[in-house]
Amino acid sequence: MGIKLVILDYDLTFVDNYVDFYEAYSSTLKTYGCEPPGFDKFMEMLEHDMLEDSVPAGISKDDFWRLFRRLYVSRHGVLKKGCREALIALKTKYHTKTVIISGRESSPSFIWMELRRLGVDEFIDEVYTLQDLVYLNGVEESLFDKTWLINYVMRKHGVQPCQTVFLGDYITDYVSALKSGVYFIGVNQSEVRGGLMRKKGVSLVAKDFYDVLLHLSSLNHVMC
Rank of each mutant, 00 (worst) to 15 (best):
K4D: 05
V6N: 07
I7K: 01
Y10H: 08
V15Y: 00
F21K: 01
E23I: 12
E35H: 09
P36V: 06
G38E: 09
F39A: 08
M43L: 13
M45T: 03
E47G: 09
D49P: 02
E52C: 14
D53A: 06
V55F: 05
A57I: 08
I59Y: 00
D63N: 05
W65M: 11
R66D: 01
L67G: 07
F68S: 00
R70K: 14
Y72R: 04
R75W: 11
G77S: 04
V78W: 11
V78S: 14
L79Y: 03
L79D: 06
L79F: 01
L79P: 06
G82P: 12
E85H: 10
A86R: 01
K93T: 13
Y94F: 06
H95W: 10
S102D: 15
G103M: 03
M113S: 11
M113K: 05
E114P: 02
L115Q: 01
R116A: 10
R117N: 10
V120P: 02
Y128N: 08
Q131D: 04
N137F: 15
E140S: 10
S142T: 10
S142I: 14
I150P: 01
N151L: 08
V153T: 04
M154E: 11
K156C: 11
P161V: 02
V165L: 08
F166G: 00
L167R: 10
S176W: 04
L178S: 12
L178Q: 10
K179S: 14
G181C: 15
V182M: 10
Y183P: 02
G186S: 02
E191C: 15
V192L: 06
R193L: 07
G195R: 05
R198K: 12
K199S: 12
G201H: 11
V202D: 00
L204E: 03
L204I: 13
L204S: 02
K207Y: 09
V222S: 10
V222T: 07
M223I: 15
M223E: 14
C224M: 08
